[in-house]
Design a binder for these strands. Structure first.
Ligand SMILES: [Zn+2]
Ligand SMILES: [Zn+2]
Ligand SMILES: [Zn+2]
Ligand SMILES: [Zn+2]
Lengths: 132, 132
DNA sequence: TGTTAATTGTTATAATATAACATTGTGTAA
DNA sequence: TTACACAATGTTATATTATAACAATTAACA
């Protein structure tokens, strides 16, 4: 079978919602907001999330247990992700910096271990919050 | 009050156990293993974990919801952490690479946001697992 | 068309983490 | 010493996040 090109019904519902809110959102919050579309149980959400993460349409913000739509057209497969997170307002944005990603993609540890994936989360205060 | 120099009883019990096992361990697994020392409830473990993370004695592996002892004597405050994680055997090791940490500490995103903290997790196969 | 894999639906439960509140211990300074 | 503030503890209950298990349906394709 060829690689899936179109999303299934539940996957599309969940993705549409995540793209609409445009900020990190939690699984159960997604659930509450898509119940009118017929999704009734946590598993239906989690299964859609798993698939969407796998194909790189969304990313999980591990430190927040939340999900965001990918803003980076060239990270089709989510194997190299970096985010900035404001510790005050919780604003999250995906970092797209070719120098950074090149550096990390080529990074090797001292044991010579080669990596096929990484996730980087930066924390600080966003511009708005640092003026408060 | 001066900065705390000595750990409290529960903090010490939890830290001793984490240092002994020497691999990522989950909160409820810690709980089961320190019950003979008098710690009875999840909260007692989580409170100790929070403090130990705060002072840099341990780190949380966010993608695994697990905790490891710090191996890096100079990250007294856990504001700059990097780990390699084997996706097969789940072995985790803390990366101590001054070039990497310098690069990340000084990283600025395009909005000029300055960060005071980061966490980086690399994924791949460790040496053992890549020969299987 | 028959076969396989992906997706869905559903109920129950596991695993991770925090709220709330009462109590006790510990360091500091009047 | 006493009084104060803060850190840590103990305890019960509950919130939040995520998966197990199994049956049924749908989509892709040789
Ligand atoms: Zn992305
Ligand atoms: Zn902010
Ligand atoms: Zn460390
Ligand atoms: Zn391994």
């Amino acid at each position: 079978m060829l690689k899936q090109e179109t999303l299934s019904k539940n996957q599309q519902i969940v993705l549409d919602y995540i793209e609409k809110v445009n900020e990190p959102i939690k699984a159960y919050s997604i659930l509450h907001n898509v119940q009118k579309k017929g999704i009734k149980a946590p598993l239906q959400v989690y299964r859609a999330l798993d698939k969407l993460v796998e194909i790189g349409k969304i990313h999980k913000i591990e430190s927040r247990n939340a999900f965001v739509a990918c803003k980076n057209s060239n990270c089709q497969i989510s194997k190299a992700t970096a985010f900035s997170i404001c510790e005050s307002c919780e604003e999250v944005s995906e970092i797209s910096d070719s120098k950074l990603s090149k550096y990390l993609k080529n990074f090797q540890d001292k044991a010579g271990m080669k990596f096929n994936k990484y996730n980087l989360e930066f924390f600080g205060l966003c511009k708005k919050c640092s003026f408060k």
